Simulated scan of single mutants.
Amino acid sequence: MLFRKRAWDIMRDEFATVDEEASLAEAVRALRESQIKSPENNIVLVMGKSGGKEVLKGAVSVWTVLAALDEKVLRDPELKVARESDFDKAFARASAVCTHTALAPHLEPDVPSLKPTDPLPVVLDLFMRRKRGWAVVQENGKVLGVVLVADLYRELSADITAAL
């Protein structure tokens, strides 16, 4: 079964997106909303226009958001000296400043990409080579869906347990 299934068999056709002009805060909101339906989702696709067509510009992942918070919020010198009563206010201020920045500096432009007809071993190989738990399924420059590592694991583990 492993070689019969393709990326389109396990991809999600519902995924979070934001416009390239969005702020990091808007990407965080879109990601949180998508996690209500799908808690294992960890990316937001960033879309833009090119030649009048909507195109994929990159992605913002949970790791991207955490890196931004680490750099801009958790390393804020004011937080280190804030008294316990002031910490929540200082943290809220630093978070607001961080997330209301432009999305561009936090964008991952090098998005792992699959074709819809790629078999599951190709999907697994891409995840392992790129050390990512997600990939975008595209055809002719159009985003069709997203495959998460949880989706691939679900398929592989079903085949493994069936073989036991």
Rank of each mutant, 00 (worst) to 15 (best):
A30H: 06
K37A: 14
V44Y: 03
A102H: 12
Y153K: 03
N41I: 00
L74W: 15
G145T: 06
G51L: 03
G141S: 04
K89Y: 14
H106L: 12
H106K: 07
Y153D: 00
Q138I: 01
A59Y: 04
E14S: 11
G141K: 03
T117D: 15
D88P: 00
S50K: 13
E21A: 15
G58A: 09
S85E: 15
D88F: 07
V81L: 13
R132S: 08
F15A: 01
A7I: 09
T117K: 12
V44T: 04
G141R: 05
E71C: 02
V18A: 02
R32L: 06
R129Y: 08
K142A: 10
G51C: 05
S61H: 04
H100Y: 13
L156I: 15
V18Y: 04
G141Y: 06
H106D: 08
E155K: 08
P105F: 11
M47H: 02
S85V: 10
D86E: 15
P109K: 14
S23N: 07
A162H: 08
A94V: 08
L24A: 11
M47E: 06
F91E: 07
E108N: 12
P77T: 09
P119H: 12
R83S: 13
E84P: 02
V62Y: 06
L2N: 11
D76K: 11
D19H: 10
L31P: 07
L114P: 11
I160E: 03
K115V: 01
V18R: 01
R154D: 12
L31H: 08
F87K: 14
L79K: 09
D76Y: 05
E26Y: 07
V137Y: 07
R75W: 06
P116C: 05
A25S: 13
P119V: 11
W134D: 01
A90P: 01
R6F: 02
K5M: 13
S38N: 10
A163N: 02
A94K: 05
A102W: 10
M47S: 04
E21K: 13
F15P: 06
E155R: 07
N140T: 01
L114W: 05
T117S: 15
L107V: 13
D125K: 14
F3I: 10
E21D: 15
G133K: 10
A162L: 07
R12H: 15
E78H: 10
D88G: 03
L24W: 07
P109I: 12
R12L: 09
M1D: 11
D159W: 03
D76R: 13
G58D: 02
V44H: 04
I10D: 03
A150N: 05
T161I: 12
K72I: 07
S50R: 12
D13I: 04
K57G: 05
V44A: 06
D76E: 15
K131R: 15
D159F: 06
I160R: 10
V147S: 04
D76W: 05
H106P: 10
S23K: 12
A30R: 12
I10W: 01
C98T: 11
V28W: 07
P109S: 14
A102L: 14
E78L: 14
K72E: 14
E20C: 10
R29C: 05
I43W: 03
A59D: 04
